[in-house]
Design a binder for these strands. Structure first.
Lengths: 228, 228
DNA sequence: ATCTCTGGTGATCGATCGATAAACTGCGCC
DNA sequence: GGCGCAGTTTATCGATCGATCACCAGAGAT
């Protein structure tokens, strides 16, 4: 056998990229792959998506875990790039409008198959970054929303929201989040008008907050008991 | 080499079980394993949990996939065994009480690490059984709740709830569901009093439903589009 | 034209995966 | 008390996984 034949390489395309480009291409395609297959997705499948061979991955990342960490970083930090802090805090505009705009922008950022699946997969792994993100939502979004609500209702300011208030905000926030899960994870039919969904959810949240604020001032809430 | 030495077996315990017992033990332990590791969890790790060897699995299940299917069946069908249909429909009791009791019982059934994790893992796989469950929640729970709400508010009965109403119910339901996810998946601190959380969520849902019902009587809403 | 640096490949290793076949062992039955 | 079957193990296969190594090739500098 002539093993020395200079096999004229019929490679589809010799894709010679700069190190930075190749590296970020790895992260992008890895995000897509892991979003679909979970983090158990293979490095060979990933290389195939790039049109390169598998060992090349290890020129850019010491291990698969390091690649995964980069995927986390990118996914979790992406939605934070929108400056929604100011949207919520800008008291020159009506609270209702601010909340509506914030949730429209926020859900625009995270309601897509890729983000939601990576988020759920990493949540199931119980990673620190996931806990950090949940804490961030609590501190930077829900606490801020509650502060604005209290201000809007003319209530006394307090450094930290009560546990019940916070839970109210979480249930509201979670309800909206679950809309994205139903649409992009379960692929179930949903009310197509997302803005309308947010608007309706806001209606009942704000009404509920006012009710709770009122009842908290005059009478103590009677505990609910269920017998049966 | 004396390869025929009758090695007196020092097995910890010869656990000789009946076929039925062994089989259900496989399903139980597989549920625990897959809940923690995902369905990528290995058959050897599963066997180790049972204190048996790995090939034994294949005496009871043709393949790992068949075992997984049994896990699905068990997990998805378990919460259905409570007869919550009657709890919701029993009009001799106040609606508010019925809803409170239903959600307390329902969440007692599904708010645990095992159930929620299996549910999320299988949801990410996009299986038919998951779609079936979501459809079941819609038809058997949310639609029924809305029907009872309409009846309670003295509104005209309609065979199927409007898309906006359904979405309202979904956001409410999802908000409660997300409480379980936060507690058992993210292991984040939550308001410990689950009944109180349900009660508060119900307050704002019912108030929101009434508001929507009122506004629907005087002015017409724009038509809503549903997309699969 | 050649040297060199670096992006990229081919071959392969050890571990682990799901699955199979054959041997063994303990319990119930006659 | 020995037979037989059902429950279990030992050994092993082929595929696939992440990772490593030596080598190749193409673009820019000289």
């Amino acid at each position: 056998m002539n093993r020395k034949a200079p096999v004229k390489r019929a490679r589809a395309k010799q894709k010679r990229l700069s190190a930075d480009d190749r590296r970020s291409e790895f992260v992008i395609k890895a995000t897509e792959l892991f979003a679909e297959e979970g983090f158990g997705g293979g490095t060979r499948a990933l290389a195939r998506k790039l049109g390169v061979t598998q060992p090349l991955l290890y020129r850019y990342f010491p291990s698969k875990d390091d690649l995964i960490k980069e995927v986390y970083r990118k996914v979790y930090l992406e939605p934070l790039e929108i400056g929604w802090e100011k949207v919520l805090a800008d008291r020159s505009r009506p609270l209702r409008i601010r909340l509506q705009e914030f949730y429209e922008v926020y859900t625009d950022a995270i309601f897509n198959r890729k983000w939601l699946r990576i988020y759920l997969y990493s949540g199931l792994k119980g990673l620190d970054i996931n806990r950090w993100y949940v804490g961030m939502v609590k501190d930077k979004i829900l606490t801020r929303i509650l502060r604005e609500c209290r201000h809007d209702a003319g209530l006394a300011m307090q450094s930290r929201p009560s546990a019940a208030e916070l839970e109210l905000a979480w249930v509201f926030h979670g309800g909206i989040f679950y809309y994205g899960v139903r649409k992009y994870i379960y692929e179930a039919p949903v009310l197509e008008d997302k803005a309308r969904m947010i608007s309706d959810a806001l209606d009942i949240f704000l009404a509920g907050f006012e009710r709770m604020a009122e009842s908290a001032t005059d009478r103590r809430r009677a505990p609910i008991k269920i017998v049966g």
